[in-house]
């Protein structure tokens, strides 16, 4: 069983049950289906960050770099007047993202601790300003998708990306795939050494493992998953712009993962939903909603030492 904790199994069962049914109740309300889709896409992004920060031990403040890259690569590489195949292009773009993650990883993983935080932040800010200042990539306005891709597999076409409900299920699938990919990786023989490297890097090296290699591969996995989230987000809204890769984007995802329970992976889903839910409620409550919301988050993080998942576990694990 890759889901070791009871709490985890219960939460995921309830989550997927509700998530599967949501469009049935909101069929006529495409605004809410769209909102729910965005939350699912964000959850993919936050899970990939939670994996890196909470499980590999790489505290990155530049994770949005790959979220933005996924979006930009997708919009830039799809031809304007021809509908490409979504699945083929997704694989193609993720492969390029993985390659970029490899190069960036080789650079940033030479540092650790506070320097790692600074250099990941710096590189993602460089990319932000590059796109912000670039004329051919649309500067601050970004780029628009002219032709949405088609989604047939072996000639079968059961998915229409213009249909919000279909897109919702595509995003839910992404959550499931991301969750499984991370959990299987963590349980694997590779995951054992990744875990060991986080718990005690010195000892792990003294036991014969090249921890740089394990961190690099993990970094590529986490970054590629983030790129997939960015790609989906760009596709949902039909555009990409530099806002995808701001440090606020990285920071917000970090807050969501801490709120959910750092390193628990399923907590990232919980944290994303809670954060977005709070934001939606506070937005309608008052003009100063950002202040109120900040206060609420700080309070929750302080009260729930191990995040929402930690709290649930205290209730449900014997």
């Amino acid at each position: 069983m890759i889901f070791e904790k009871r709490t985890e199994r219960i939460f995921l069962a309830i989550f997927f049950l509700i998530a599967l049914c949501i469009p049935l109740f909101l069929e006529d309300n495409s605004f809410f289906v769209g909102k729910a889709t965005t939350i699912l896409i964000l959850a993919v992004f936050v899970m990939s960050l939670d994996f890196l920060v909470g499980r590999v031990g790489l505290v990155t403040l530049g994770h949005a770099l790959f979220y933005g890259l996924g979006g930009y690569l997708f919009v830039i590489l799809t031809p304007e007047y021809e509908a490409v195949n979504f699945w083929v292009y997704a694989v193609y773009i993720l492969a390029i993202s993985a390659l970029i993650a490899l190069v960036v990883g080789v650079v940033v993983l030479r540092t650790s601790g506070i320097y790692f935080i600074m250099i990941t932040l710096a590189i993602s800010q460089m990319a932000y300003y590059f796109f912000f200042d670039s004329l051919e990539f649309g500067g601050n306005d970004g780029l628009f998708i002219f032709m949405k891709p088609e989604t047939s597999i072996f000639g079968l076409n059961f998915l229409n990306l213009d249909n919000p409900t279909h897109f919702y299920y595509l995003s839910l699938l992404a959550v499931l795939v991301t969750l499984l990919a991370i959990k299987i990786t963590l349980r694997s023989r590779f995951g054992r050494i990744v875990e060991a490297s986080r718990l005690n890097p010195e000892r792990t090296e003294a036991l014969g493992y090249n921890i740089f290699a394990f961190r690099l591969i993990s970094y590529i996995i986490g970054s590629t998953l983030a790129a997939y989230a960015g790609l989906l987000f760009a596709l949902q809204y039909g555009y990409v712009n530099p806002q995808f890769m701001t440090w606020e984007m990285s920071g917000t995802a970090l807050v969501m993962s801490i709120l959910g329970g750092m390193g628990t992976i399923y907590g990232a889903i919980l944290g994303t939903i809670t954060y977005e839910g709070l934001q939606y409620s506070f937005e309608h409550l008052s003009e100063d909603w950002m202040l109120l919301m900040g206060g609420a988050i700080i309070l929750m993080v302080l009260l729930l030492r191990k995040g929402l998942a930690g709290y649930l576990e205290k209730l449900l694990e014997k």
Binding site: I184, T185, R187, S188, R189, F190, G191, R192, I193, A196, T204, L207, G208, Y209, A213, F214, I217
Partner: peptide
């Protein structure tokens, strides 16, 4: 963790530990 390197590849991302 100490023993794994002797018997199996540690870059296997799929097989359970």
């Amino acid at each position: 963790v100490a023993a794994q390197r002797r018997f199996t590849g540690s870059f296997n991302l799929f097989a359970s530990r």
